[in-house]
């Protein structure tokens, strides 16, 4: 019983945290610098922030996946840039 509840709790932790962040006020009244940022391009700032954060990761991920697929094609089996991260030889 306790285990189930604990599992439920850890499952919920992530979404709850995300929800808390989202419903948190966009502006803290006591904060002197918060109001300074009240401009009408907030949405764009958040959007481009997300975009710029994701893009490099997508680019690298894409290249790695491509190289991997290519390695499969060229060498047949796995050995490839990242799957070439295989076990190092164990020399006795």
């Amino acid at each position: 019983m306790g285990a189930v509840r604990r599992r439920l709790r850890t499952r919920l932790a992530g979404p709850l945290l995300a929800a808390a962040v989202l419903v948190a006020p966009g502006r803290a009244l006591a904060c002197a610098v918060c109001a300074a940022g009240e401009t009408n391009n907030r949405a764009e700032f958040i959007l481009t922030t997300a975009f710029m954060t994701a893009l490099p990761l997508l680019l690298v991920g894409g290249v790695v996946l491509y190289l991997r697929a290519r390695a499969r094609r060229v060498h047949g089996a796995p050995p490839s840039p990242t799957s070439a991260l295989e076990e190092p030889r164990r020399v006795a």
Binding site: A43, E44, F45, T48, M52, L55
Partner: peptide, 21 residues
């Protein structure tokens, strides 16, 4: 080309931000 893509991504983002203003 990857570096160039990031360059243009930066420009587009800047454009969107200023446009939003």
């Amino acid at each position: 080309v990857l570096a160039e893509i990031m360059l243009f991504a930066g420009l587009i983002s800047a454009f969107l931000v200023v446009k939003g203003l």
